[in-house]
Structure formats: C-alpha cells, structure tokens
Nucleic acid binder design. Structure first.
Lengths: 192, 192
DNA sequence: ACGGTCGATGACAGTGACTGACATCGCCAA
DNA sequence: TTGGCGATGTCAGTCACTGTCATCGACCGT
C-alpha cells in the first residue's frame, strides 16, 4: 500500500471522475482525490497542472489523431472535406466509450470552470487545425474559419451523441451536422 | 478619501486593467487592485465574482445588443443574414474604442485563464443566439450551427481588427470573413 | 435636529488550490 | 554494495475566495 503502486496517474484520474460524479466538482477537494488514489495532494499536482486538468489530460492523443488525419490527406481533397474526414476519424475513436463519455460530459456540464477548460481544449484543436490547413496552402482567414466551423460541427454533434442514453452513430451525426451547416451558410434552408 | 467615493466599480476595472497590463495577470494580486482603487480586497469580490471577471463584466450590454438585433429583424430575413446584421451592430459598438480593445485583448491573450474566460463568454453569446434563432423557427441543430459559425466569424474578424495598430473597419472585416466562410462551405443542401 | 433604516464598505478569520524546498523511498546500473 | 535518479512524502507559505459581523454614510419620516 506504500509507494510504487503502478499507474498513479490513472488511479488519480479514476478517483477524480468518481468523486466529481458523486459529490460534484466544487464539493471535492484535491486531498480527497489523492487519498482515494493512495497518494498525497502534492503528488496530484505533480501529475496534473490543476484540479480541472485531471479530466482533460487524455485529450492530447485525440488532437494528434485529428491533426494527423488532415495532414495525411492528399492535397487534392478540398479543405472542408479534409476537416470532415478528420472529424470522422476522431468520432471513430469514441467507439464503445459512450458510457464513459456520457459520465464525463455530465460532470463537465455541471460546472462552469470545467466548461471553460473544455472550450479552451477545443480552441486548441481549432488552432492546430488552422495551422495544418495553412500548410496545405489554405489562405487566411479561410483557414481559421474552416477550422472553427469544423470544431463547431464536432461540438454540436458530440453534444447530441452524449445527450441520448441510447447511442446513435457519432460519425453519422457529424455528417448530418456538417450538411446542415453547409445548407445554412448557403442561405437555403432552416428559415421560417 | 474615505468611503463613498463614486464609481467604485469603474475604479476597480480601471485599476485592474492597468495592473494586468503592466505586471501581467498572475503577478497582480486582488489586494493590489483594491488598494489602487482605494478599496479593500473584500469589496472587490462584492463587485466581481472573481479576479478574471473584472475584465469581462462590461460584455453584458454587448450580448443584449447582439441578441436584440436578431430578435428585432423581420422573420423574412434568412438566419445567416440575421446573424450577419447582429455581428455588424456589435461591431459598430466598438467604434472609436480600438485602443482600449487592443490593450484589453493584449492582456487576455497573454494569459490562459483569461482566454478561457473569454471563450466561455463567447459561448454564452452563442447559446443566447441559438435560443433566439429557435424562436424564429429555425430547427435543430441548424440553430446551434449557425450561431457557432456566426460567433466564429466574429472571433476571426475581431482578432484581425485588434492585431493591427492601424484600425481598419471592423464591420467590413466581418463581411469579408462571412463571405470566406460561405465560400469554404459552399455546396448543395444535403450533399455528402 | 433626531433617531431609524438600509445599502455599501471594512475587518477578520477561515478554507482550499497551488507552489517551492527539502527529505525519503525504491529501482537500476556500475 | 553503493551511488545515482526519478517518484513520492512532508511542510510551510501565498493567494483566491467566502462567511460573518461591525461600521459608515446617506436618505426618510417625525
């Protein structure tokens, strides 16, 4: 029970999600999380920059998948389609994790500070995507706008996916959302 | 010099911007802000929910202008055009405040926590806009997507406006950005 | 003028997030 | 065995933020 139990980081992540889910984010102290993981508060802060980050540290791999997908596509693919492909690749990464995503998202939705952190993570995706698009020769500000729009599509689709207890196909939700955005910016659909 | 100097709130806002601008956000304590404004730390927290909010409290009026503009437009106006009109109305509100906006934005850009707060404010605009669009009969998820895309247009245009020391016309920057987004997403309704 | 009410402020103690400095523990290589 | 080294523990300290109560200053009715 002493030091050197394996996977300290993972234990902290799991303990945090459980406590945030049970008592709420604000009602949970870092000391409690650490204790449940068999560690000390100081060690928590060696693994995670702050109390919120423990819920978001896993997102780094997704961002790499996301950007990598766009970068690997042939230049002949138009930007909006490249973004669509990347979104679908990320969506596929959530396969079979609906229950986990749902619990985590419920915790985040219940607290403003956690929503803030989530938004800045998505903004970081958007910035990385903007960069990748520029490298493909997309101009400014088109690159930023396509990236922001793409992230918006993901956000909306993901929200819908998580809302329902009965998991639909996230990839398809993303396709639908993108089509709706295309229609709306063309000024053709959705008006009263 | 005692109590009852007028405009305590405004003095706190100005003192905070000056100190954040000079020393940086993290290097400034709330006690210092309060002292410069001739008040105490406790009074600061009676006016602003936290150390960041002092930079964002003025945004409420803008959100009302923004949503109000959309709500007042005749239903015959297509959603994307209604959003464009609202963005331009807000842009007009920044007339002659370029120097202030520039200083404030520099402070925000220099600190991750402040960027987080800015993102959640924009997300709040987006949510309010989504609501207003729904009331105009726009369906889901089109309402969310148009709102998110509109905010993205504003974000990109505003960034460009603030970047340059020599102020261009924000309204025109917004028009250009919206056109770029339309071009990038151009396609038929329901296309793959 | 007087006393009373009320909102804004001050004073103070307390909690908890986060940090820096240093000691300690367990693994691995020389 | 021993020394290095990374991960952890311990402890003190700062600062954001909160609850509570006292105090001040303006306005109001008498």
């Amino acid at each position: 029970m002493g030091r050197w139990e394996p996977n300290a980081r993972g234990r902290l992540e799991q303990a945090a999600l459980e406590l945030y889910s049970d008592r709420g984010f604000e009602q949970t102290t870092v000391a409690e999380i650490a204790k449940r993981a068999g560690l000390t508060e100081r060690t928590f802060f060696r693994h995670f920059a702050d109390k919120r980050e423990v819920l978001f540290a896993g997102g780094g791999a997704l961002q790499e998948l996301f950007v990598g997908t766009v970068a690997d596509l042939p230049d002949s693919v138009v930007p909006i389609d490249a973004v669509a492909a990347a979104l679908e690749a990320v969506a596929a990464g959530f396969e079979g994790r609906h229950a986990y995503a749902r619990e985590r998202q419920a915790v985040i939705a219940a607290n403003a500070e956690l929503r803030e952190r989530e938004l800045i993570k998505l903004a970081s995706w958007s910035a990385a995507l903007t960069d990748t698009l520029r490298r493909r020769g997309v101009g400014d500000p088109a690159a930023s706008l396509i990236a922001e729009a793409g992230i918006a599509v993901f956000k909306v689709a993901f929200e819908r996916w998580v809302e329902e207890p009965d998991p639909r196909d996230l990839v398809q939700l993303i396709r639908e959302s993108l089509d709706e955005l295309k229609a709306a910016t063309a000024g053709k659909c959705g008006s009263a």
